[in-house]
Nucleic acid binder design. Structure first.
Length: 297
DNA sequence: GAAACGTGGCA
DNA sequence: TTGCCAAGTTT
């Protein structure tokens, strides 16, 4: 039963998967890692152009680690992908690869988990997709797909727990390469067919065996928790401040930052958090991205 | 375990 | 127009 689920998903995947650049043969583990971190909470359509530019400029961890303009250049290349701490951590991954792994992205799950910004999902995704290892790869797509196809529920639970890993592990074929492909297939199904709103069950390769369909597609039993409004939050102010520094040639005086947000208290709080995160540096007078040439540290 | 952390597209 | 949603991680 479980083999047929993975089998059907894999057959469908082989026939209809999107041609994403990081799936091209010859993509390095570094390329896979970059894609996985960029894709955290971020749609494919916005990641693709940045991934291409990133890999062209920094084709290896060593190229990134030895670029003298870092990490300012990484933050600028990140552009408007959101959560710019990811750019910082990706640079830290490159440095760690050079310092601890001879310039290579490690293939060991624990070594991957030790990299900055790499958690349970990303570590297993890299181990599976870059190195062909057999690990359950559980992201929001997989949790939703398994919740429906196996659990018979409209939505997955709130968190990625050990139970999620165990449930997905049971679905994987024994052969490592097949298991990795099945994980990619589960993710792809969740991303393009078994989507959160208005799933396209008519196009689903497992619709006839789907537990949720067989149960009559019952609605979610618990109302989803409402999302936090973005407008007016510190996150928005941080984004506005970062946009100024990204677009600036070098260090800027405080006046350049003062204009982005009228509430001085909130603006200072946001700037302080950016300094704490290491996304901004200051000499006590002007502000800049970390490592900006001729900038302040 | 909850909250923080960006941004933009779409229904 | 507003709210939901997108390949999560960290504290």
């Amino acid at each position: 039963m479980s083999v047929s689920l993975a089998g059907a998903a894999t057959v469908w995947f082989d026939a209809t998967a999107r041609d994403l650049p990081w799936r091209e043969p010859g993509t390095t583990p570094w390329g896979v890692l970059v894609s996985e971190i960029m894709l955290q909470q971020t749609p494919v359509s916005r990641v693709t152009p940045v991934w291409l530019a990133w890999l062209e400029r920094w084709p290896t961890p060593s190229a990134m680690a030895h670029d003298p303009d870092q990490p300012a250049a990484a933050i600028r290349m990140w552009g408007r992908l959101g959560y710019p701490r990811r750019a910082l951590r990706l640079h830290q991954c490159a440095v760690a690869a050079v310092e601890r792994h001879d310039g290579e992205i490690p293939d060991d799950l624990d070594a991957l988990l030790a990299l900055p910004g790499v958690g349970s999902y990303t570590a297993r995704a890299v181990a599976a997709f870059a190195f062909g290892q057999r690990h359950p790869v559980v992201d929001t797509n997989v949790r939703r797909f398994v919740a429906r196809a196996v659990g018979g529920k409209a939505e997955a639970g709130p968190a990625t727990t050990q139970r999620d890993l165990d449930a997905v592990e049971e679905l994987l074929p024994t052969n490592p390469a097949d298991a990795a492909r099945a994980s990619a297939a589960f993710m792809e199904l969740g991303a393009v067919v078994c989507v959160a709103r208005s799933p396209r069950c008519a196009a689903c390769p497992v619709a006839t065996t789907c537990a949720w369909r067989r149960a009559g597609s019952p609605p979610a039993d618990v109302p989803g928790q409402r999302t936090q409004t973005y407008a007016g939050t510190d996150r928005q102010v941080r984004g506005l401040l970062m946009a100024v520094l990204r677009d600036a040639e070098g260090p800027v005086p405080p006046a350049r930052l003062d204009v982005v947000w009228p509430d001085a208290v909130q603006r200072h709080r946001a700037l302080a958090s950016l300094l704490t995160d290491g996304l901004v540096v200051s000499d006590g007078n002007r502000y800049a991205l970390p490592g900006t040439p001729s900038g302040t540290q």
